[in-house]
Simulated assay, not measured.
Amino acid sequence: MSKSGGIGETIRTVVYAVLIALGIRTFAYEPFNIPSGSMIPTLLVGDYLFVSKFSYGYSRYSLPFGLPLIPGRILFEEPERGDVVVFKLPRDNETDYIKRLVGLPGDRIQMIEGVLHINGQPVKLQRVEDFIPPEAPNLRIAQFNETLPNGRTHRILERTNNGMLDNTPEYVVPAGHYFGMGDNRDDSVDSRVLAGVGYIPRENLVGRAEFLFFSTNGSAALWEFWKWPVAIRYDRLFDAIR
């Protein structure tokens, strides 16, 4: 009897733990990792971060497997210009993407010679020290502080002013949509590519990227703990995302 009771108690404990974990992942924070360099220098390949699910309210994409249990968005709060957000790629509503929101509903967005223009005005750019990739110390990339109209400042990389997406038509962000761009401006498929990403529907927002909790240089997976001493980027642990 006691053995049976012990097994039952163990099963209940496991079930409760799974339900608590699902609740936290669905309504509070969800972990993500960065597989590409489109958000360098803010986010590097091998970064692991937590995304707050409650920042913009909840939609079906807040739920596991995108279950269609929430119509539209509930408890919605408008994102701020400059937020780094995770969203479901509009063309398939499945793939997780991460970009910085630079355009809000109704905004006019355009790139002119590598400079972001919002509602006809260029954003402020300030050249800072070159970016040196941690795994390529001989490479130097032009780096700038970019200040958005609301005063939010972040760093971007700009290799050239005449890249494929450095001179664009003017985009008008539809109601209920947002315009996202990667901080690595010449190596990012983002809302500038309408057929690839395009405008981000409000419903597709998953959450706001808040802070890094782990980062490796790519020589070790998250579970390969025996490689951590030489793989971890210690200066990026528990760092807020700006």
Rank of each mutant, 00 (worst) to 15 (best):
T147G: 09
L116Y: 02
P134K: 08
F144M: 07
P229D: 12
F32T: 06
F214C: 04
F213I: 09
F50D: 01
V172I: 12
I20R: 02
T26F: 06
R25K: 14
L67Y: 09
L237N: 02
G46N: 07
Q110F: 03
W223S: 14
F211L: 12
R127E: 13
M39D: 04
K88H: 04
E170S: 10
R202C: 03
L44Y: 11
Q121A: 09
N162S: 15
Q121R: 15
F225T: 14
G8Y: 11
P169D: 08
D190C: 06
A240F: 15
Y48T: 07
F50Q: 08
M39Y: 07
H154E: 09
D166W: 11
V115G: 01
T42P: 00
P137A: 06
S215Y: 05
P105N: 07
H177A: 10
D130T: 02
F65V: 14
E129T: 10
V230R: 05
E78G: 05
Y61E: 02
G196N: 10
V128Y: 02
I141A: 00
S2I: 10
N167A: 09
T13G: 13
A231E: 13
L212C: 05
E158K: 09
E30M: 13
I98C: 08
L19T: 05
F50M: 09
Y16H: 00
L49M: 13
Q126N: 13
S62R: 03
N162Q: 08
R236V: 05
G218R: 06
L125V: 01
R60P: 00
A209T: 04
F131R: 00
